[in-house]
Write a protein that binds this DNA or RNA. Structure first.
Length: 282
DNA sequence: CCTAGAACCTGCGAGC
DNA sequence: TGCTCGCAGGTTCTAG
């Protein structure tokens, strides 16, 4: 469920607490939450000091004083909760020792209802980046994100624009909510063939995606229910600022016509048929 | 290589 | 009050 803004809220919250601390006991209550040998993960992590909490797209990872990192992906329903065990799905608990301030030891838990997310160790390439996500494109918040490269790749795709926006190998961080919000802001129907787009439109897409995700980040992310919360269990407020997602039948903020819902890629898409004229097949 | 589906899971609300 | 069905912020594997 979480897209870039929600993952960034969790990343920042976690970094604020665990930087320069040392991992103590690691307890795994659900093997599916660990995408590798359970014993290896436990053994490699204990005693490691956390030097940075990083993110690309929807993936985040703990950098350590070791030649590997701990990858964390929240999937559809994953949470990181600090110093509390929410009822339901305790999966992996990491204790850490606060050597920085002398505060009492703490722990965080990775909790995941649907277990599409998980934790795993990854080694790093020569640039220090996790090899586990070498296939994931840079996200629009990345200073090294290349709009020209994205535009070139996008217009060459022989698929529809919404599908391309959800392809993490092309641009990362965008999911079903922000793809719909972005396309509404640009005035583009999601089924438009990529081949019909030009570089200028591609740049508008990046700009709109960056803006909407930044607004969501400032609001603490989008929460429809208790499944997405920050490390302290608190919801974000951006759902009240969504223009199309989840607003079937409600008036379009731009033209007043009702927002419609359709099936696309086996999931829901929300759009304004007036502001985003449907692409007509030739 | 690229694209499009199915598969992986649990829980909730709607409708019968 | 159940029961079934559809639906949910994602990724990855496979077949074509």
């Amino acid at each position: 469920m979480p897209e870039l803004p929600e993952v960034e809220v969790v990343r920042a919250g976690l970094e604020n607490l665990v930087l320069a601390t040392t991992i103590g006991a690691v307890r795994i209550h659900h093997e599916r939450a660990v995408r590798q040998n359970v014993g290896d993960l436990t053994q490699q992590l204990e005693g490691a000091t956390i030097t940075r909490v990083a993110r690309r797209g929807k993936y985040m990872w703990l950098e350590l004083d070791r030649p590997f990192v701990l990858m964390i992906h929240l999937g559809m329903s994953g949470q990181i909760r600090v110093n509390e065990s929410p009822s339901g799905h305790p999966h992996v608990r990491l204790d850490w020792n606060v050597i920085r301030t002398g505060e009492p030891n703490r722990y965080f838990e990775f909790v995941d209802q649907r277990t599409f997310g998980g934790l795993r160790i990854s080694d790093q390439d020569h640039n220090g980046e996790p090899s586990a996500i070498s296939h994931i494109a840079r996200d629009p918040f990345d200073p090294l994100f290349d709009v020209g490269l994205f535009a070139d790749s996008l217009v060459k795709r022989s698929t529809q624009v919404k599908r391309a926006l959800l392809d993490q190998n092309l641009i990362s961080g965008i999911g079903n909510i922000y793809a719909d919000e972005c396309l509404w802001r640009v005035g583009l129907d999601g089924t438009t063939p990529c081949a019909r787009l030009d570089r200028s439109t591609a740049a508008q897409i990046v700009s709109a995606a960056t803006q909407v995700m930044n607004e969501a980040l400032v609001a603490g992310g989008t929460s429809f229910d208790s499944l997405y919360v920050n490390v302290n269990g608190e919801s974000g407020y951006f759902s009240r600022s969504l223009s199309v997602y989840g607003r079937e039948g409600a008036p379009c903020e731009r033209c007043g016509n009702p927002i419609t819902r359709s099936r696309f890629m086996n999931r829901s898409s929300f759009h304004c048929l007036t502001c985003q004229p449907p692409w007509l097949l030739p």
